[in-house]
Nucleic acid binder design. Structure first.
Length: 1223
RNA sequence: GCACGCGUGGCCAAAGCGGCAAAGGCGCCGGUCUUAGAAACCGGAUAUUGAAGGUUCGAAUCCUUCCGCGUGUACCA
């Protein structure tokens, strides 16, 4: 150990030692509990910035802490190396994106290494390498098969000049970043992941992670998903029907008889809009799914082997085929079945029902099920089974007994599924398939009409419908489900109609459309979505978006001025909106009339610019008295406002308007009336507060929020009253609502939705703000989407064994024109995996959020060539115990990764719902910036080019540029362009990695902003040097571990130091557990100060003092390790006299000794009437009575208590005594 | 506008399920050492905890209102 602290020297030394010994390389182990510490992976932009340093310093501190606590810590890092900057660099500088990326990774790895971060470098993943993106593609295909990946038409930012799609950033301000031409919208077919299918789970599972995630992140995710519970209500429209039967052959085919997809889309749209109604179904009709994509009009029933006689289904018949698990469940069962896919597989194997061909034949008397061969391999050398699955071998390393144990679980879980699993098969291609046996069921054959009804129900299930079992069908899809022949329907003894077929939805067979008989009708109802069905009696209009289909459909019937206004609004909606712009409400009465189904009242249909087509149904009922927007709208256009919700029950009516206004002003506690509340509170007489508002205001409001609210227009009995000043949007009691009057809002909401449902004009419903995730990018530098378009077979996924679809090296990257891959014939020309005819590859690539959605699972098994990762290996390490990332990723990235985890769970790769147990979001690193905005644009000046004057307090008084011009200053996020960036390499060079890391952890709490000040880091260095000097002075005296001499009677100084040491250990341990890093550093500084304050000298100290110093110093060093590992290793080695240091000696975080931390005598504050009057010294064990007695006897206290009545004595053990006196 | 968060010495911050005299660091001032400065060491000053009110024996901490700052979000029905 040198006398002086040379940061660079010891940092290089220990980095080398760690690397050589593989100190941070970990494997699965039963000896220690695991801990998975993860930080957001960096984009390899070319250099690390201080934000990275902060993120990784925090993560490394946690990793070290857990390591010292005896955990087996997985701490990996990788590269988010796909994405636009590489492509931009290619465009701007003509470099090769791959080379550019690889070079940057090399540079940045060097930077990370110089910081001495404790990564297991062997586990790196690189998003841009085919070993990784192969599995992006694998997942894509899995999701496609599960119905979670689909294609639909959507709008993208388009530059007509460059013929290129633009990202939002490239199109900011509505102009192309490259050529400056205005950006337009263009329709393009894009791939989507069905995140909405998991919206409910994404919300509901938040409770599982609530305790470990920052509240604001959960809140933002919740807002983003935006679930609202409400109801759909149909408002009838009185129109003359136009009954034109549609000849579907003509409607869907060209004059030449060719199938025409454009026509199909038109029909699909009209069906969606409700303009085509079904009159009669051919009973032999197939399922039809009209999807957005042109290439798959999906259809087909796949299970048909149920026979039935005399009202009894034949239990026991084998129902073969590809009843894939994801579609087995009738909706509600879907997730449950899927989430137990493993259990099913295990059950099958254990029960000996997964059979090799011969055994299968022996058991079932035939070698196939519906033409599909079944087989399984049993590893002859082992007790393991290998299932041919998804084209890959997947070894389950477990025993049959394990599976057998799960049979009960499965059976208990799915009693209502009308099938039992009896085996597995394989479709000869890629799909695992399941063999079910129909359960025996007794019942009656339903009447023809009932079956017809069922048809219609299934048919109209285009958005959501309810099956006879009460289950919901697939949401948000155009499924036309119909292959219901009488032979497949049975009415069970409970009267429920049961449909026996399992259904699959993905099949490119699409030729049965002509079997529908349809007629076109005019839209005869407007469906609105409302969260306040209880206010429906107050509706004064139905307001629809200008883009609502009824507007297009009824265009011909509108007056010219109406049309003009509607077109205005549509045009206005297309314009880009300013962020803070408040849009004035606008609209017009269309002249159409709608009928409120609850009271039969005829209401006008308006177009309103505040109604958005893409939320809910694009139509709302306007209830001005109880909705602020509707209120504003009604005010502007002089529409009637009827109050139907009262804050108080109806039996307490307000007598007249005057009283009403007065009450409102007196008791309102909304902001609006804050003044009045103050008035009430200012006057403390009881008389002025008859309603008890002071009590409410003061926090006696423990009851409930709704009771608390006494604001707003008070109860009104006058139905025509029109003069309220604000909308009353709280819940309350219904008035003026016919039979519902008097009910509470909550009851009414539920009951009215039920009523609407029973009467067929509505139902309870939930909507989401969250949309499906668009993953297509017309870019080069991303994972190619593994799909193939075949003129005959339609859209076909690449076979798993053909993955990866490699990104060609020779694509022309110009930034203009189509996706670069669309210019590479060798890439896109291919053959169909299904029919082997000529076909074309998808040329779009995937969003890079795909890479970051599952990267941390790859770390657990990054060499796997068969699966994304081995499920058993991942099961040891995951879920992530602690994730640390920037706040900016808190919403999108983490929603996507939560979604992805749920998909992986449904695939069977993981067994939990949430990928990240604890999350810490770290604040930005900011610095002072100096700029000149006199030209209207901010021109930044680098700090080293300006002259800054500060006052004696260090505040900036003036800033002048090099040319003497006065500049403005601010504190902003560090960036190159602002000139306030700090180069981490330079920091490490000047101060050392330890000091840099210590400073960023110490300077501010992790989730706060960190303002970079050079002086701060100097303080960190000084602290390290201070400790270093102390260690250097004492290392010889502390010997090689043993302290000689008598230590049994410690001196007061030694005792005090021990106390401080153990108090510090306790404090730091707790702080680190709760992810506070700034306070432990402060505690370490205090401990170091105490060491110096003790003023012991190694030459003269007594053995007990040496022992205390040794304990304090060793603890200090060990606790410093998470913040400054290199210097800690070096000092530890010096103290123990063994060059190996902390890691190699497997040292542990110091243990807290409560006894040692305890003081012999504690000081107790004595208060009289809450004011401090004296202090007494007592043993820590003194009981309350004794403390009270001592306090009362105290001379100073007696000055204040003598001659007065002691009313009460409060004793807080170990802290204080408070004597309350009177008189 | 709405939601959430935050206001503690000149600056960054701790204590926040109410309980001692409100940690620690940076900066500042003085001293020792030094030719001088820096570093180091020793010592010191600096706070009605944004404001007002309430609850309480006792409030930085709980409640209400107001003011200021920050973040998110936007006619989400």
């Amino acid at each position: 150990m040198d006398e002086k602290y040379f940061a660079k020297k010891i940092e290089a030394k220990w980095q080398k030692k760690w690397a050589e010994s593989g100190a941070f390389e970990v494997e699965i182990s039963d000896e220690k509990p695991k801990f998975y510490q993860l930080e957001m992976l960096p984009y390899p932009s070319g250099n690390l910035h201080m934000g990275h340093v902060r993120n990784y310093a925090v993560g490394d501190a946690v990793a070290w802490y857990k390591r010292l606590k005896g955990f087996n810590v997985l701490h990996p890092i990788g590269w988010d190396s796909f994405g636009q900057p590489a492509e931009d660099a290619a465009v701007k500088r003509g470099v090769n994106p791959r080379q550019w990326t690889e070079d940057n990774i090399n540079v940045m790895r060097g930077q990370l290494e110089r910081l001495g971060l404790s990564y297991d470098w062997r586990r790196q993943m690189y998003a841009h390498r085919k070993e990784y993106y192969k599995f992006d593609q694998w997942f894509f295909i899995k999701m496609f098969e599960m119905g979670l990946a689909y294609k639909k038409m959507t709008q993208v930012n388009w530059c007509e000049n460059d013929k290129a799609t633009l990202s939002n950033e490239q199109a900011s301000g509505g102009i192309c970043w490259r050529c400056g031409e205005p950006v337009t919208k263009k329709d393009l077919e894009q791939w989507f992941f069905r995140t909405t299918a998991y919206a409910d789970q994404l919300i509901d599972d938040m409770e599982k992670i609530e305790s470990g995630w920052p509240q604001h992140v959960l809140k933002r995710q919740q807002d983003w998903i935006g679930r609202s519970n409400g109801a759909y209500v149909d408002f009838g429209i009185t129109l003359v029907d136009q009954n034109d039967t549609i000849d579907l052959d003509k409607a869907l085919k060209t004059a030449e008889g060719e199938f025409d997809y454009d026509k199909l889309e038109d029909v699909a749209r009209r069906i969606e809009e409700g303009r085509i109604a079904i009159t009669r179904l051919n009973r032999a009709a197939e399922i039809g799914r009209i999807a957005g994509g042109r290439t798959h009009v999906e259809a087909s029933i796949i299970v048909g082997a149920v026979s039935r006689a005399g009202g009894t289904s034949d239990g026991g018949e084998i129902v073969g085929g590809s009843a894939r698990l994801d579609h087995l469940g009738w909706a509600e069962h879907k997730q449950r079945v899927k989430s137990h896919e493993d259990a099913l597989i295990h059950y099958a194997i254990a029960s000996d029902i997964w059979l090799e061909s011969a055994a299968f034949e022996a058991k079932y008397g035939r070698s196939d099920i519906h033409g599909i061969e079944a087989y399984v391999h049993k590893d002859p050398d082992d007790d393991r089974y290998v299932i041919k699955r998804f084209g890959y071998d997947w070894a389950f390393q477990t025993t049959p007994q394990f599976f057998l144990d799960r049979i009960a679980v499965f059976n208990a879980l799915f009693p209502e599924v009308p099938y039992e699993l009896i085996g597995f098969t394989h479709d000869g291609k890629q799909n695992l398939q399941f063999v079910f046996r129909q359960k025996k069921l007794e019942g009656t054959i339903p009447a023809e009409e009932e079956i017809d009804d069922l048809f219609l129900k299934f048919y109209s299930a285009s958005v959501i419908d309810v099956l006879p079992s009460g289950d919901k069908t697939y949401e948000n899809d155009l499924y036309l489900i119909s292959d219901i022949a009488p032979r497949n329907v049975l009415k069970d003894n409970a009267g429920n109609i049961r449909v026996f077929d399992a259904i699959t939805l993905l099949n490119t067979n699409a030729h049965d459309y002509h079997k529908f008989a349809l007629r076109e009708a005019r839209i005869n109802k407007i469906k609105v979505f409302t969260t306040r069905i209880d206010t429906i009696y107050g509706a004064n209009a139905v307001v629809v978006a200008a883009e609502h289909p009824i507007i297009a459909a009824e265009r011909n019937s509108f007056a010219d001025d109406v049309l003009a206004k509607i077109d205005d609004i549509i045009a206005e909606n297309l314009k880009p909106k300013e962020r803070d712009e408040e849009i004035e409400k606008d609209g017009i009465d269309t002249g159409l009339k709608a009928v409120n189904p609850f009271n039969g009242e005829e209401l006008p249909v308006w177009v309103g610019n505040y109604v958005m087509m893409d939320y809910g149904t694009g139509a709302v009922m306007s209830v001005p008295a109880h909705d602020e927007r509707d209120f504003e709208f009604a005010k502007k256009f002089g529409m009637p406002i009827l109050t139907v919700i009262s804050a108080e029950p109806e039996n307490k009516p307000v007598e007249n308007e005057e009283k009403e206004v007065q009450e409102k002003e007196t008791y309102g506690i909304n902001d609006e009336y804050g003044r009045s509340v103050r008035d009430v509170l200012a006057d403390s007489t009881k008389e002025n507060d008859p309603g008890g508002i002071r009590g409410l205001v003061r926090g006696d409001r423990r009851s409930s929020d709704s009771e608390y609210v006494v604001s707003g227009p008070a109860a009104r009995t006058s139905a025509s009253h029109n003069a309220s000043e604000i909308a009353f949007t709280d819940h309350g009691f219904l008035i003026n609502s016919g039979r519902w009057s008097g009910k509470t809002s909550d009851d009414a909401k539920r009951e009215m939705a039920e009523y609407a449902c029973e009467n067929g004009f509505g139902e309870a419903a939930t909507t989401f703000r969250l949309r499906d995730w668009g993953v297509s990018r017309q870019r080069y530098w991303g994972a190619p989407i593994p799909m193939i378009y075949c003129p005959d077979c339609g859209t076909v996924p690449v076979k798993f064994e053909d993955l990866p679809v490699e990104l060609p090296d020779n694509a022309p990257i110009t930034g203009t024109g189509e996706s670069p891959l669309a210019k590479v014939p060798e890439f896109y020309e291919t053959s169909c995996p299904s029919c082997e005819g000529p076909a074309r590859r998808e040329t779009d690539t995937m969003d890079t959020f795909v890479d970051s959605s599952w990267y941390f699972f790859r770390y657990t098994d990054n060499q796997n060539e068969v699966l994304p990762f081995d499920p058993d290996t991942a099961a040891y390490w995951t879920p992530v115990d602690q994730y640390i990332g920037g706040d900016d990723h808190a919403v999108m990235h983490l929603i996507y990764t939560r979604f992805w985890t749920k998909v992986m769970r449904d695939i069977g790769l993981v067994k939990f719902n949430e990928p990240v147990k604890r999350l810490l979001t770290q604040g930005m690193v900011v610095g002072e910036t100096f700029y000149d905005d006199s030209t209207g644009k901010k021109i930044y000046h680098a700090p080293d080019t300006v002259t800054v004057e500060r006052d004696e307090k260090g505040r900036i008084t003036s800033v002048k540029a090099a040319d003497g011009k006065e500049l403005k200053f601010a504190v902003e996020r560090m960036s190159k362009s602002k000139g306030n960036g700090v180069d981490p390499d330079e920091m490490v060079d000047v101060y050392g990695a330890d000091a840099a890391r210590l400073f960023v952890l110490f300077a501010a709490p992790v989730d706060n902003e960190l303002v970079w000040h050079e002086a701060g880091i100097e303080g960190a260095v000084r602290f390290l040097q201070r400790v270093w000097r102390f260690v250097h002075k004492w290392k010889d005296a502390l010997g090689n571990g043993a302290v000689s001499g008598d230590v049994s009677t410690p001196s007061p100084a030694a005792k005090k130091l021990r106390q401080k040491t153990h108090q510090t250990i306790n404090r730091i341990d707790q702080s680190l557990d709760t992810l506070q890093f700034n306070t432990p550093v402060a505690a370490l500084m205090e401990l170091a100060n105490d060491l110096y304050d003790m003023k012991a000298e190694p030459e003269t100290a007594s053995p007990d003092e040496v022992a205390a110093v040794r304990e304090a110093l060793t603890s200090l060093i060990l606790m410093l390790t998470p913040f400054a590992p290199h210097i800690s290793e070096e000092m530890f080695a010096a103290i123990i006299g063994n060059e190996n240091g902390i890691l190699a000696n497997d040292a542990r975080f110091p243990a807290y000794d409560e006894e040692a931390a305890k003081a012999d005598e504690i000081e107790i504050a004595v208060q009289v009437n809450g004011k401090l009057r004296s202090r007494i010294f007592a043993s820590p064990d003194a009981d309350n009575a004794e403390l009270e007695r001592m306090a009362k006897d105290d001379a100073k206290v007696r000055e204040h208590t003598d001659g007065k009545d002691v009313v009460k004595v409060i004793v807080v053990p170990g802290r204080l005594v408070n004597i309350v006196v009177k008189g």
